[in-house]
């Protein structure tokens, strides 16, 4: 289900306090980062995980994640042993933001103690919502590779900057553009038609306009 524009799949377990999700099969839990922590971070630049075989007590860290806006540890939701680490996210931390529930998982844990901090979504959706509001986390249609904040700048100038960045970026680069020019919504639609790049989302938040664009 969507909670305040953030994706929280129904079948998973969540540790709201810690900002993680988990999926169980045969006593092994796959653990990953939920939107609260993922979007708060501004995009991970570093992911560190304890080595396979490490025993971790509930509430102690199995690793850490760091982005330009936030550093945090990821805690074990129960007493456990680390049985596998996702090497892909150690090499490309952004994968945790881009694909939080699939390729961007962090580790697999074998539960060794009974007490758990995990709860199904039906039990914790209200907490997720209040946590997102408290942290002022906003989720968008896709996690951007970069952000351009252009406040007090005319939309034409914003677009020329966007074009410059798009020109040197690889295909499918996703950019979050923020503008306070009232004509931005119309201009961005025209830009999409003219350039053939995609406008994945346009959202107004007070006097600010948020756009998620993707290079074709």
């Amino acid at each position: 289900m969507k909670i305040l524009d953030c994706e929280y799949p129904d079948g998973l377990l969540y540790d709201v306090e810690d900002g993680t999700w988990a999926r169980e099969s045969d006593g092994i839990y796959v653990i990953g980062v939920a939107p609260t922590l993922g979007w708060l971070s501004g995009g991970f630049e570093s992911v560190k995980l304890k080595s396979v075989g490490t025993r971790v007590a509930r509430g102690q860290s199995i690793g850490s994640v760091e982005g330009p806006r936030h550093f945090d540890v990821v805690r074990a939701p129960f007493d456990c042993t680390v049985v596998e680490r996702n090497g892909a996210v150690l090499d490309s931390p952004r994968l945790v933001n881009k694909s939080p529930y699939h390729d961007g998982w962090l580790a697999k844990l074998k539960q060794t103690g009974e007490e758990t901090s995990l709860a199904p979504l039906a039990q914790c959706a209200a907490n997720v919502r209040s946590r997102l509001l408290e942290l002022r986390v906003h989720c968008f249609a896709a996690f951007p590779d970069m952000e351009i904040y252009e406040i007090g700048v005319e939309c034409a100038a914003v677009l020329s900057k966007l074009d410059e960045i798009i020109a040197v970026s690889p295909a499918e680069t996703t950019i979050h553009v923020v503008s306070d020019d009232p004509t931005a919504a119309i201009e961005m639609e025209r830009w999409e038609r003219q350039t053939g790049n995609s406008l994945l989302e346009a959202r107004r938040d007070g006097t600010l306009f948020h756009f998620i664009v993707k290079k074709r």
Binding site: G42, P68, I148, Y149, I151, H176
Partner: peptide, 10 residues
């Protein structure tokens, strides 16, 4: 000019 994390520090 300013990292996007700090849009007010332009």
């Amino acid at each position: 000019l300013a990292p996007p994390e700090y849009p007010t520090e332009h």
